[in-house]
Design a protein around this nucleic acid. Structure first.
Lengths: 222, 222
DNA sequence: AATTGTGAACCTCTTCACAGCT
DNA sequence: AGCTGTGAAGAGGTTCACAATT
């Protein structure tokens, strides 16, 4: 979700694009990749909807914010629509990531295949633990967190991943923003305060598992 | 998010409780824990809101679905409200988790402190890789995925965590549902089809990072 | 005086339904 | 005939504003 007084991105006529729509575009993209790999070259909004548990009107409305990509009576060309969504989401570029906090979660992310497959590459590792600084992981040297500003510039970082303990998260976010970064993936279980031109996405597994315990609890209550 | 033809849980007067409200209850809970640890014993909806980047009306509305926990003119008793939310979310029970897929992500989850701290404990590990079956991790033996039904019963599993490759995810979900499970945390980047009484929460880091590349891309477009 | 609890207003997102193309 | 693209309607979620209570 978007954090602190965030601002939404806009579509082709300047509308605000909702987080929900952006999330679904990612899903359509994955579906289209799947279909393309299997040699399918045309798909209807109906099929894209079915494969994602939503309605076909939702699919068409989402796409309509960015253009008219289909052909009436026929549907969408799989390859073409995939390229269009890829461009909308910025997946046709290569992105440089900084990992701040080389702990338990951080290590798992370094080895997370799906990031690499989608052109998201770690270009910088930062930590404050003297025992970690200077060691090498996936071909990268762990740098001192104190030199964040300089290292972020050197590595041409676009997106930062915060994987430090909760107590340090806001301070790290402040430093990242000061260093000019405008996109943060936050794994710390806290609401970060950032300026409105910075986008934060929170990855909070505890909230999701608590949602499940809520569901089970309420089901028994009925 | 809720998957396939999902059904929402209901509040004290039978209203539907939105995912957003449940997510915020988790956040209030964490804020209340933080305040309690620091000896604070009263908090206003205004302060809970400020600490979570939302409005005080939102806080009061969320809580009102479940009861009247505050005192007008005074605010909320921190300890009392924390206990109430804990009960609503089912955090006053101990939950048994099954981890299906002991790979990269799975291993990180086993060592994820925040699950243990919140009474979510792994009670069963399943994998289909013969080299992994029979080995021990965090004091648990990795069991054969083929024996899912029996092992889920034996370990009294409440919640399953799917951390298998995307190709296997739906099959695993089907088996989990057949074994009687009603709550799934899904790390596979796919929309799972499950009956309406089963709650699925998707943990999709690729969608979140693509959201960030979208934000950066749109910002440059302006 | 302060702050909750909540109906009503408001705003946003989803779905309907059909005109418009192919 | 079939399927998209979209304005309008509908549903759902958030915020306002104020009566109720301490």
């Amino acid at each position: 979700m978007k954090a602190a007084y965030g601002e939404m991105a806009s579509g082709r006529f300047g509308q605000k694009i909702s987080d929900a729509t952006v999330g679904r575009l990612s899903r359509y993209f994955r579906t289209l990749k799947y279909l393309e790999e299997r040699g399918v070259d045309t798909v209807s909004s109906e099929e894209l909807a079915r494969r994602n548990n939503i309605t076909s009107a939702q699919v068409r409305k989402d796409l309509s914010f960015f253009g008219a990509f289909g052909r009436r009576g026929l549907g969408y060309n799989v390859r073409e629509l995939k390229l269009n969504i890829s461009h909308i989401l910025g997946l046709d570029k290569e992105w440089h990531l900084a990992l701040v906090g080389v702990g338990n979660i951080g290590l798992a992310l370094l080895n997370f295949k799906q990031f690499q497959e989608q052109n998201f590459h770690f270009a910088l590792l930062l930590d404050s633990d003297p025992r970690k600084i200077g060691t090498h992981l996936v071909g990268l040297e762990v740098k001192n967190l104190e030199n964040l500003t300089v290292e972020v510039k050197k590595a041409h970082v676009d997106i930062a991943v915060i994987a430090v303990p909760v107590e340090a998260a806001q301070k790290v976010a402040d430093a990242l923003v000061a260093a000019g970064l405008r996109a943060i993936l936050n794994f710390a279980p806290i609401s970060l305060f950032v300026p409105q031109d910075v986008t934060v996405r929170n990855e909070n597994m505890v909230i999701d598992i608590e949602h499940l315990s809520f569901s089970l609890t309420q089901a028994n209550t009925k």
